[in-house]
Design a protein around this nucleic acid. Structure first.
Lengths: 292, 292
DNA sequence: AGGAGCTATAGACCACATCTATGATCAATA
DNA sequence: TATTGATCATAGATGTGGTCTATAGCTCCT
């Protein structure tokens, strides 16, 4: 019918202000343009929409009916534009992140707090899972970005290297005799080892490292969370393999100390994954910039 | 923000069909035009609205939010256009007519029935009142047209002359002796006269006519409706001054007969009034054409 | 009578919406 | 693995129509 919705905007303002001149001002147009626009509408409907008089214009019966629809329509568009501006400003929206519990707690938490503080209107959705689960979330579009340990090899994903983490062996007061020693792998394996039970990247990595030196690392205890890994070590149940950055508090206060090995343990990196060639939401982009 | 609402129409179809190509077909555009339109929206919002892939496009989170508003907006516009088409076709709308009871009943009724039959969707509003009341209704915009006796002199009104009516004196069986006589005014005034009580144009006219011949007509009985005027005459209570066309049934069946006077009574006309220089609704225009 | 509003009309102009043609990418074929 | 047939993106040309200026016509108010 009408192939130029701009005409409705003009109609809306003309009806709202009761004046073509006022409508023109509101729309940054000239009065003849508005007059012409209204005429086009009237001609294509075959219906007179306004009574014209020397004080301005007034809706006819039929014009009033049209207005009742168009008004709602225009209000929705205004709301849409406001919403888009809010999304752009990060005053609104949502940010969905996937990752492991420990990374959320020990690494992402300050960024999340900071981001939430800056952008109160943005809802945070955190999904925790193992690395493969997080990748699935990402591919299913259930999260905007995933935070996991590198390396990730998946052509569909784009991974940005972020923080460097250093895994290490730590023990508590019960093993104080090891504090100033430099241990070999052989020696270390004499002690009870506590490892993370789930198929985590850290677990796979340490197993491979020991294997490359001809050793097999077999844990005495397997636990299901990083917190337990720390707690068990503190209580002297064995030597835990943890990420140094996650136990910085305990190392400082002395409730744990790091075991020095005679071979280097390679550092690992935290990567932030996104879908390759998929546009990021404003919130996700902003968050990534912040974490870097 | 967006200064071309056409873009929203394009966005709506692109989102709805999930394909720029399909949207282009729906809008009778080419695919590059649609692509360009979406890009404009995205650039002016600074927000990516669609994921593009080889099967088509898919809304992003933010695009989906925009769509929730725009969809409603577009639906309202479609409804508006349908409504306008219905008003134009006279499948919908309303027709508000003002007039006197007697004109509605004895004169307009068949037209109203016919119009209602043809245009079932149009609501009829009938307001009855005296001629000055009807004029007021018209000026207040409460009716679309008024049907009253001519002449009307009012520069704001446009009056189209319609049917001609002839007022006359009628009597019932009780005055059978007058049936084949031609009476003078003097003679007529010997009999009890029944006139309409309200300040109707007919009452004023007949008073003036008698005055112009040097007589004064004073009713024995005054009644408040044309129906009573007829009924009182039938029952022999006197001679009623009525519009001939309103008693055609009684004249035919013989329950009333017309008194012949030796002076002519001037005919009167029914006029259809509208506001001068005010556009008429489609329904009103159509009705007027029908009545002519 | 004059002025200050308002809307309507006429005619000119140039931005921009749309087009055609082509490229790039992907997926499902042969 | 090459091919075909989809998709969307890009570039450049084109001409329509939205917008402008200027002016007229009208009504109301001083």
């Amino acid at each position: 019918m009408i192939n130029n919705y701009e005409l409705y905007k003009v109609f809306y303002w003309a009806a709202k202000t009761g004046s073509l001149t006022q409508a023109a001002k509101a729309l940054y147009l000239t009065q003849p343009s508005v007059s012409h626009a209204i005429k086009q509408l009237e001609e294509s409907f075959g219906i007179t929409l306004f009574y014209r008089n020397s004080k301005g214009v007034e809706l006819t019966q039929e014009g009033a009916i049209l207005y009742s629809y168009i008004e709602q329509s225009q209000i929705l568009i205004s709301m849409a534009e406001e919403k888009m501006a809010a999304l752009k400003n990060l005053d609104s929206g949502e940010l969905r992140i996937g990752g492991s519990d420990s990374l959320f707690k020990h690494y992402l938490l300050p960024y999340l707090e900071d981001f939430h503080q800056k952008h109160r209107g943005i809802k945070l959705h955190l999904s925790h899972g193992t690395t493969p689960e997080v990748i699935t979330f990402l591919k299913e579009g259930r999260i905007d970005l995933g935070v996991v340990r590198m390396p990730i090899v998946d052509s569909q994903l784009e991974v940005k290297q972020s923080f460097q983490l250093q895994d290490c062996f730590v023990a508590g007061a019960g093993y104080a005799e090891l504090k100033d020693m430099v241990l070999s792998m052989d020696m270390l394996l004499q002690y009870p080892i506590i490892l993370f039970s789930r198929n985590s990247r850290a677990r796979m990595t340490i197993t491979e490292i020991f294997q490359s030196y001809g050793h097999t690392i077999k844990p005495e205890i397997e636990v299901g969370s990083v917190d337990l890994l720390i707690e068990f070590a503190r209580r002297g149940l064995g030597i835990s393999y943890v990420t140094r950055e996650f136990v910085s508090k305990e190392l400082e206060e002395g409730s744990l100390f790091e075991i020095q090995l005679d071979v280097p343990l390679p550092p690992s990196h935290v990567g932030i994954m996104t879908m390759r060639n998929m546009p990021l939401s404003g919130a996700a982009r902003s968050f990534m910039d912040r974490v870097r």
